[in-house]
Amino acid sequence: MAKLNKDSLKTLSFITYFIILFVFWFILSGYLKSLLLFFGLVSVLFVFWMSYRAKALEEDSLPLKIILRLPFYWIWLFKEIFKSGITTTALIWNGKYSPQLISVKASQKNRTGIANYANAITLTPGTVTIEVDKKTFLVHALSKKLSEDLQTDDMNKVITDLDK
């Protein structure tokens, strides 16, 4: 997959996008009649044309390389959310919070990766990305332990590896 040139990569990402759209339509509707499937195809084509026209299909916005790793990443992310959620819940109940601001460095190469990392920080309870400045984030953490967890750089590494 890595050896493909730019044009065929683009075609491949178009096809993937089309398939994702159609599967999405099917999950939401659940119809199997051929007439309704045809209508679904028409609406999917319409959405495809609209997003092509809106230039939403640039290479940065359709990260084809990471699409297979995404489910594993989501499972890992859910585990992280659960862990820090327990910590945050304990902090709320026992009142031993000490809010603090820290700055975190991001090592992702492209914009999608940086947005991904910032979102992952915000998504885990107890840490919120306030400001993104090129490669450093301003992060608000609810306690010292949570900010130290973030500064071990584990999450940064996982999300950087996602894009290899």
Partner: peptide, 18 residues
């Protein structure tokens, strides 16, 4: 319970995710 805007966002995030 939490003291300011930023801390309260954490609590809201807890509801959203978990």
């Amino acid at each position: 319970k939490l003291p300011d805007v930023f801390s309260r966002i954490h609590a809201a995030g807890l509801i959203d995710t978990l």
